[in-house]
């Protein structure tokens, strides 16, 4: 464990708790893409299948359990409890356009052709594009609530910090995982224009609105 990965994990935890809190407090999931949340749920379930078989540390197990639980709770709030506030007209990104190619790629490019490894690879690839429906929804509505933009900033920062963690581990531990690194870079690049908008607008107290 290194500081970059720890801060990254905490930023990730903050992001998903922020989103859950926003939906619960405002009793509304307006502006939140349910499709992205379903894909994140899929990401955690397929990645943490080893939750009970492969004990690494208390921290690792606890965080995995929290991520899965919060993801399921968020999906429940969006599609059941506050279903009436779900903006399905703007959440129109076709998930199958992401899940099918990612599933195919996981079969073709992986470290080991075993079920667990392919599911882990699928999870890594899917996570890199899972935010697209959310970013697409914001581009359609032309704006995002401030709390939602904080959620996205924390979520985007987590993987950017993981890239720094991978550089650190490469030089100090001789560890590198090309699949995770490439997917992590793609994931972070997808946030770039949002990061620009966030820094130039939200940090100056303005609402996040895309140039019409």
């Amino acid at each position: 464990m290194n500081i970059f990965r720890l801060v990254g994990d905490l930023s990730h935890l903050l992001a998903i708790l922020l989103l859950l809190w926003k939906i619960w407090k405002t009793r509304s999931c307006a502006g939140v893409s349910g499709k992205s949340q379903i894909m994140f749920g899929l990401v955690y379930i397929t990645r943490y299948l080893d939750l009970f078989t492969n004990f690494i540390s208390i921290y690792n197990t606890t965080m995995k359990a929290i991520f899965i639980a919060v993801a399921i709770a968020t999906i429940y709030l969006i599609y059941f409890k506050f279903k009436a506030t779900y903006d399905s007209n703007h959440d129109t990104f076709r998930m199958e356009f992401l899940i099918v190619p990612v599933g195919g790629l996981a079969f073709l490019v992986n470290h080991d052709f075993t079920a667990l490894e392919i599911l882990w690879t699928f999870s890594i690839y899917l996570e890199s594009v899972a935010i697209l429906p959310q970013l697409f929804m914001i581009s359609k509505t032309g704006e995002a609530e401030t709390i939602t933009s904080h959620y996205l900033f924390a979520l985007g920062s987590y993987r950017a910090l993981y890239i720094v963690n991978w550089v650190y581990r490469y030089y100090f531990e001789g560890f590198f995982d090309l699949i995770a690194i490439v997917a992590g870079c793609v994931q972070t690049i997808l946030y770039c224009d949002f990061f620009y908008l966030y820094v130039t607008k939200v940090m100056h107290g303005k609402k996040l609105s895309l140039p019409a």
Binding site: Y162, F175, F176
Partner: peptide, 10 residues
């Protein structure tokens, strides 16, 4: 250099 393998990351 060790590739992939250790899934100690979240």
């Amino acid at each position: 250099l060790q590739k992939g393998a250790t899934k100690d990351e979240l």
